[in-house]
Amino acid sequence: MMPNSLGRNLFIPLTLFLVIAFLIGPFLIIVAASFSAGDTLAFPPQGFSLRWIAKVFTVESFRASFGMSLFLAIGGTAAALVLGIPASYALSRYKLPGAEVIRTVVSAPIIVPGIIVGLALLRYIVVPFGVGISLALFLAHTALVLPYAVRVVSASLDNLRSDIEEAAVLLGSSRTGAFFRVVLPNIRGGILSAFILGFVTSFNQVPVSLFLSGPGVRTLPIDMIAYMEIVFDPSVAALSALLAFLSIGIVFAAERFLGFSRYV
């Protein structure tokens, strides 16, 4: 009986260890590789240096595509919130006919594979209507972030009693005024959380952007793929590590100051 019960006692910790190792392992490898002194992307790293991290900041195309990604992540998420907040409000406060259908349609960009969304946008929007690449990317990222915006904002609206709006109205506010005076301030945390989630989602987005990237217009992840096809040095690892730390930092700050996990 002894070996059997020992096996059982080890099973859960061992599984746990393997799962965590599998989740964190690649990240640790990338971070380690980015400090390599060697000329190719390799693990274990050869020696220690900061030169690949420094190099990231000198690659011209990285700077341009980082700017593009930043624009899409901020602009696309902001646009998704401008559309998503009223949509969430309507879905949570009114008994709309077909509310479930609307919810499903809004979630479609998450469910439909990104490759298909990208291809469809390219084939039926960009090409026939001559929409610019930047605009197409902006629209695509807005659509991709919208489901997150609606979900997170809805969650915080559902936690907010609707009678405070009636109270505001009876104290002299208009309906619209009540939204801005008592609803918006109370879902601020949800909106910021949605923004951060949307930002990270957009920033890390590959499949849709892959189809919509053109000459001179690329998002950072696409640029990294293109770079790796030509140069196989550790600067891509260094960039990945920097981005990962950026994302971790944002999410950590959000959790610390806003209680991010309440909304997601």
Partner: peptide, 13 residues
């Protein structure tokens, strides 16, 4: 017309 709600409906923020 004033109304005191059953839930009080105070503005939490």
């Amino acid at each position: 017309v004033g109304l005191v709600f059953q839930s009080y409906a105070l503005f939490p923020h």
